[in-house]
């Protein structure tokens, strides 16, 4: 989350086949922890928010039809609601970190709902305003993620 715009990953370490099983077991165990699930949900929210940002940019430039943009925002809105519920119900060591993430995801949901409502009535000015809200919410999410999962002093 500290790097929401991930550069194209390229890795030239070659794998010994025998490592695969160990890797799967370790990753599987890691995947079971609640903290990891919250981190994963936060990344889903970030990816969803970037999707909304791209859809809105395309719509404003006339490169995406309104029906598509509205449906995309509606679908992402449901994803964000689901993410928020999952983060809320997860048990993690630092409730403060969870509260920050929940608030940030909620802000994203509000911005997306605002954008979707304005898209339905074709109000470009308000859609641009919702875009700004969305960017602010994305910054909040990045900050909350760093606070919850970043290196501690």
């Amino acid at each position: 989350m500290a790097h929401p715009t991930r550069a194209v990953p390229h890795n030239d370490r070659h794998f010994p086949v025998g490592c695969l099983c160990l890797l799967l077991i370790l990753a599987g165990l890691a995947g079971c922890s609640s903290s990891n699930q919250v981190a994963q949900q936060s990344r889903t929210a970030a990816s969803a928010a970037q999707t909304v940002s791209m859809v809105l940019d395309a719509w404003v430039e006339g490169a995406a039809p309104s029906a598509y943009a509205t449906a995309a925002l509606h679908s992402v809105g449901k994803t964000l609601a689901d993410v928020e519920a999952q983060i809320r119900s997860a048990e993690i060591a630092e409730p403060a970190g969870r509260a920050g993430l929940t608030a940030a995801v909620n802000s994203l949901s509000v911005a997306v709902a605002h954008a979707e409502a304005e898209l339905r009535v074709n109000n470009r000015t308000e859609v641009k305003s919702a875009q700004q809200d969305l960017r602010a919410a994305m910054r909040s999410l990045a900050a909350a993620y760093t606070s919850a999962f970043g290196p501690k002093p």
Binding site: P4, T5, R6, A7, V8, P9, R43, T44, A46, S47, A48, Q50, T51, S53, M54, V55, Y68, A71, A72, S75, V76, T79
Partner: peptide, 13 residues
């Protein structure tokens, strides 16, 4: 990926 969309789990993407 370069725009931060690293999860494609919705066909609208």
């Amino acid at each position: 990926a370069t725009r931060g969309i690293d999860q494609v789990d919705d066909y609208h993407q």
